[in-house]
Amino acid sequence: MGSSVLIVDYDAGNLRSVTRAVARSGATARVTDKPDDLKGADAVILPGVGSAADTMSKLVARSLDEPLREYIFSGRPFLGVCMGMQALFDFSEEGGGQKCLGIFPGTVHHFSLENFKVPHMGWNTVEWLHDHPVIEGIPNNSYFYFVHSFFAEPTEKGVVLGQTKYGVTFPSIIAQDNVFATQFHPEKSSDLGLSLYANFVSWAKSPGFFSGSK
């Protein structure tokens, strides 16, 4: 592949930091809201802030939902961030209930905790459960920046690569095959967050990814 990373724009606000973080790692970051662009993409990032209902309705309104699913199932490298991770599950409880992309079986729940403020906002540690190229060189239990009121609960625990404690222990990184997704915002997590983006770009370029799709 070249080193071009496609960032999906579904009117979710702040794409600037994600774009810059990718550009720092030497890749060309391109922002798009065109479904057809996903067909030829080498690497895709689904960023996100806001609510699940809003995210899904905007993805649907721009006809990005099916192309995203097709892209992910094609086996090419994918990074989801925050809402871009939650949207990968079957269903979110947010806003009375919202069907999501259904890449991973599981549900997204609200933090309903005594003595813990919601949103979970600020820097918290992520404990690695196993190795992965995208976290290479980043120490276990490093701090990343979180801001969210909901958390994912995957049916298959094996997809959890990193976990974080906030009243409950919840998955802060999901990884399986070509998919890597974080609940935290690496683009707001200073140097270690930038390392994660750089690792993603290297991983996406690694041989093996494109044997089936190209």
Binding site: N14, R16, S17, R20, A21, Y145, V147, H185, E187, K188, S189, S190, D191, G193, L194
Partner: peptide, 10 residues
């Protein structure tokens, strides 16, 4: 804009 481009904390 300049801050967002160069500083990666909230």
């Amino acid at each position: 804009a300049a801050t967002a481009d160069q500083v990666f904390i909230p």
